[in-house]
């Protein structure tokens, strides 16, 4: 609840600041200072496609180890048994590897969708799922713009599965398994603010190596997984239609109108009822 409220004020703050500055990006990073979400920066120019992250993820979450490998032309997908995958793309800059998993949105659509708060944005940053709350409605799957949450369709007691940024490990002071084991330092863990600064620094210091955009800085209202790429992001399988505003904002208008409807509609109905009633009474007297 406290997070929701904070998010709400943040949205308010962002909107206010946006109007004032007329520049959304600035406003967002200002609001970040308050929250200090943890985040992961993934630099695809450093990724060698070794799948160590996949293996360590499987190990950390008791999932089967992957048996296939990144191949150009094949899109491997995350599933209920696999929370992260590395894919290979043939791009204008040669072969590029891309790791995919939950983006850990600042304002997650899945969390806003969830009617039991089973999907939850923690104040530390990871978006986690809690088994004892979930009722398995799969509305989170409908709502996630990145199609991340998966469902164990073949279990009588199914779970929603997705990357949780190794929240348990973070609680113990450890790094997420993928970050800890990445041999190429393609994955870095830190606060979101630090990592955005780091990503900017890399782009500025090495403008030829990078496409000048940090995917996740603004996408879907900002995410805790940040991406650097040598090529435009659509070349490596990222959706270009993802909006920059947060997804839960799309339902705000509807949700805010609910109290108004609850006040207005009954009073209008009662008014009409009174009017028709006195009309009827008049008619009856005439009869």
């Amino acid at each position: 609840m406290s997070i929701n409220r904070r998010n709400f004020f943040k949205v308010l703050g962002v909107t206010g600041a946006t109007i004032a500055l007329g520049q959304e990006a600035q406003a967002k990073s200002a609001s970040e200072e308050v929250t200090e979400f943890k985040a992961i920066l993934y630099d695809s120019t450093r990724c060698v496609g070794c799948q160590t992250c996949e293996f360590s993820c499987a190990e950390a979450h008791n999932l089967p180890a992957p048996e296939d490998f990144p191949e150009v032309g094949v899109i491997r997908k995350t599933s209920e048994k696999r929370r992260t995958v590395v894919n290979a793309y043939d791009t204008s800059a040669g072969e590029v590897y891309v790791k995919r998993q939950c983006m850990h949105c600042n304002h997650p659509a899945c969390g806003a969708a969830c009617l039991t708060q089973a999907m939850q944005k923690t104040k530390e940053g990871p978006v986690i799922w809690r088994e004892d709350k979930c009722m398995g409605c799969r509305y989170c799957m409908i709502s996630c713009p990145f199609d991340v949450p998966k469902f164990e369709y073949n279990s009588p007691n199914p779970k929603i599965t997705k990357c949780n940024m190794c929240f348990e490990r973070q609680q113990e002071g450890k790094l997420p398994a993928c970050v800890e084991n990445c041999p190429g330092e393609a994955l870095v863990f830190g606060t979101r603010r630090e990592l955005i600064a780091e990503a900017r620094r890399r782009i500025v210091e090495n403008p030829d190596a990078y496409y000048p955009h940090i995917y996740g800085e603004n996408e879907a209202g900002g995410t805790s997984f940040l991406y650097l790429s040598p090529v435009p992001f659509e070349e490596i399988g990222f959706s270009t239609t993802i909006q920059n505003a947060s997804y839960p904002a799309l339902t705000k208008g509807f949700l805010y109108s609910v109290p108004a409807v609850f006040v207005l509609v009954p009073s209008v109905l009662l008014g009409i009822h009174k009017a028709t009633k006195s009309n009827l009474d008049k008619n009856n007297q005439h009869d």
């Binding site: 929701n4 806003a112 969708a113 969830c114 039991t116 509305y139 839960p248």
Partner: peptide, 12 residues
């Protein structure tokens, strides 16, 4: 566990 921000919560 009120997911009061959820449309589905309202609908339910």
């Amino acid at each position: 566990n009120f997911g009061a921000n959820s449309v589905l919560f309202l609908v339910a």
